[in-house]
Design a protein around this nucleic acid. Structure first.
Lengths: 234, 234
DNA sequence: GGCGCGCAGTGACCTAAATCACGCAGGGCG
DNA sequence: CGCCCTGCGTGATTTAGGTCACTGCGCGCC
């Protein structure tokens, strides 16, 4: 119980809720544990509430008939998922699956809305979260429609390195947590193409990849490549 | 003045605001008229507030260096635009341009947030609007990444016909308000490809196109095509 | 009436990316 | 140890879709 309360307090959305409201919320929240790969909900299904991620990560994605996936966004501890259907009362727009072993708290959508009515700061927080999500999806739309695979990959690697990497003598360095398959699903292509694009970026000395260890050798160059630029060369 | 008030009342977001709050809002709102093609704001620019569309339509889009555009969404009378930067205090994520002669009301973002705090129903309305937008962008992401041009075009035509068309003996019929160029920007491709894809859909008797008059001859077939299906034939 | 303009249609490319078909390395485990 | 599984790399081939370059039409306007 107190751990649920603690978990909710660590959350972007609910952190500045007064103690008693938080307690009340914690009492109604129900825990759910997922193993890596387990699905939380599927697109089209009716949505009953919001999920707060306590530990782990959830990936929301869409799927084609042929089985190709496009991930729409990934949320980690402290964030929430499924707010869209909570606020517009429609079905789940995407599938959601645990990227790692994950613990979520389920909160009934009526409780969420009640909270928004009684504590406007919650509503504003939710609005801010949705705004961030929309910013992210707009960027993704631009990339998918207007940039080539190399650029999308460059942008992805850069983001990954800046978010999780450490600065070394040779450049930003990260352990890639994703397989090429998963990277492909993020940037909207397939495994083989990612593989080749990585090889290309290495040949141009923008990055170095040893196993899953990525080092960004030329940050500026990689950023340029991400922005676009039809660099035509041998 | 009263016309501003009237306009705000006709708006999805503010319609159920009490009279006095509405009057107050109307007093602070400032009108802006745009001719077709005039731009309202550009991506990256600092955002000072929200725009309520009174008449006309605004198109939000992203642009590549080479000049290709991808429209992200289009909003019409009664809707608002630029809520993302209002709620997360960042710059404008997209460019916005008037699709037709348009009248908007500008509302300072501080006023918007104040309203959200004092009238939770406004916050919930905004959340619902954002949720709808997110639903739309997720669908667009799926289409861009997972479907071919024909499917995207079929989906677009279908939506257009269902929204604005009339049912005739031969099928749903609409006047297309967009040039092929504009359709291309919506579905993420270029003029010529739209032209050819339209020809293909006609050859298969799914649609008929005379000038800009579109008639959906086979609604079911067109829907199937939109969903996907690698129909391979002569 | 003729000229210019914007838009649609189309043929002939070209190229990025998807698909297919492998082979190979590492790692868990019977 | 030997094997199976998963993920990676890579060549060969195909294909969708983007680009270029024209044509031709409708329409407004001088």
């Amino acid at each position: 119980m107190t751990d649920k309360l603690e978990a909710l307090r660590r959350t972007k959305l609910f952190s500045d809720l007064p103690q008693d409201a938080l307690r009340d919320l914690a009492e109604h929240a129900v825990e759910r544990r997922l193993r890596r790969g387990e699905t939380l909900f599927v697109a089209g299904e009716e949505a009953r509430g919001l999920y707060v991620i306590v530990r782990g990560a959830i990936r929301a994605y869409r799927e084609s008939l042929s089985g190709r996936e496009q991930t729409v966004h990934v949320e980690r501890a402290g964030s929430t998922i499924a707010e869209v259907p909570v606020f517009d009362d429609g079905p789940h727009p995407s599938n959601a699956v645990a990227e790692e072993d994950t613990l979520v708290l389920f909160i009934d959508k009526r409780d969420v809305k009640k909270l928004c009515r009684e504590h406007p700061c919650i509503a504003l927080g939710a609005l801010k979260a949705m705004a961030g999500r929309l910013r992210h999806t707009a960027a993704l739309i631009e990339r998918l429609s207007l940039r080539g695979v190399d650029q999308r990959l460059a942008a992805f690697l850069l983001e990954e390195a800046e978010r999780y990497g450490v600065r070394t003598a040779r450049g930003l360095s990260v352990e890639l947590r994703l397989t090429n398959q998963e990277i492909a699903a993020r940037i909207g292509t397939v495994r083989e193409v990612v593989s080749r694009a990585l090889a290309r970026l290495q040949r141009e000395s923008l990055i170095e990849l040893k196993g899953r260890r990525l080092t960004v050798l030329d940050e500026r160059g990689l950023a340029l490549r991400a922005e676009s630029f039809i660099v035509r060369q041998a």
